[in-house]
Amino acid sequence: MPLSNDDLAAIWLTLKLASTVTVILLLIGTPIAWWLSQTTSWFKRPVAALVALPLVLPPTVIGFYLLVAMGPQGPIGQFTQWFGLGLLPFTFWGLVVGSVFYSLPFVVQPLYNAMTAIGLRPLEVAATLRASPWDRFITVVLPLSRPGFITAAVLGFAHTVGEFGVVLMIGGNIPAETRLVSVQIYDHVEALQYSQAHSLSALMLVFSFIVLLLVQGVSRQNTQRKGHG
């Protein structure tokens, strides 16, 4: 069964969302992961727990609170209105905000692991070679945690593609605006269009499998490199 125009729109929207979210997540996740890997503050544990929350919470809970927060009375809603951006629920950017929260641990965790694995020594060496803290971050931390960045980007992207609950809560089901692949499949099933649901589902299955294969390849390369050290 070939994909319908609605299906293609949903795929396009999903890819657009996942790419946008991945870029934002890397920008936000890098400083968070770096701070977590360096700090000895008591504040570290609460922040780490907060970042990890989406791992255990039902997506509907996150979706619900984000919906409230982005609503006209919520703090995010007030903020966006004050900036003249309007309200975010049931828009593409609303989905972006929700996805960023939802996929944050999948980006922060691999980055944090990679940065912790560098250890103190390369940074000390760089400091004795006259590198300022910023210089050290750019020339030592970033290149040495490259495998972590690849894993983080792939996982962040894939996890955003696969979300459903949060999307349904704050995005609704507006064609070409907030209707993602996962929602489209749900719609097909509701309408008993099993063969269409099957095409899209199979596509997702293959995609997810390839992604996990990639991630394993990266982490294997990584352990091999460490094995030599």
């Binding site: 020594r121 390369p122 000390e124 760089a126 400091a127 004795t128 590198a131």
Partner: peptide, 20 residues
Amino acid sequence: LAVHQRPLGYVFQEASLFAH
């Protein structure tokens, strides 16, 4: 003075070259 502001060279016990 921060480490990177001190005009020194440091050779660590293990060579600690940048692996990348």
